[in-house]
Amino acid sequence: MVTFKQPKAFRAVDSALSEWLSSLVRWLPILRQKAHNLLRNSAMNNCEQTRQWLDAYLDNELDPVNTLKIEQHLLACAACLQAYEEQRALGQVTRAVPRYPAPAGLRERILSALRAESDPLTSIHSC
């Protein structure tokens, strides 16, 4: 009877392979957890960054790339969308703060002060 005997090199590869597979099985849950954490952190960063840039986004002060990033995030995140709605309403409120118009006499007052400054003799004569 002929028995097949594996070459020594084959046996070494086989044992290395099974060792690698068993270590992979052992590490798989840990790797999975790490990937999960990474994804969760990146989502949190997106929320954090979105909130940080929300004002600049509403003020049209963001560059196109970051504008697009914010818009994509707002489509996917209900909490940030709510924050956006609040900030938008607040923008309406701040725009409603009444201005103080310049009093009617101020223009003339400044013009005569400027005239006096440019020609001191004129202002003496006009007094």
């Binding site: 201005r99 103080y100 118009p101 310049a102 009093p103 101020l106 223009r107 400044i110 013009l111 400027l114």
Partner: peptide, 21 residues
């Protein structure tokens, strides 16, 4: 240069000083 921005100038000054005069 000054008069076209008189309203903006007065508005800022009014908010900062808190008094018309």
């Amino acid at each position: 240069m000054i008069l076209p921005h008189l309203d903006a100038a007065y508005n800022l000054a009014r908010w900062l000083t808190g008094h018309d005069q």
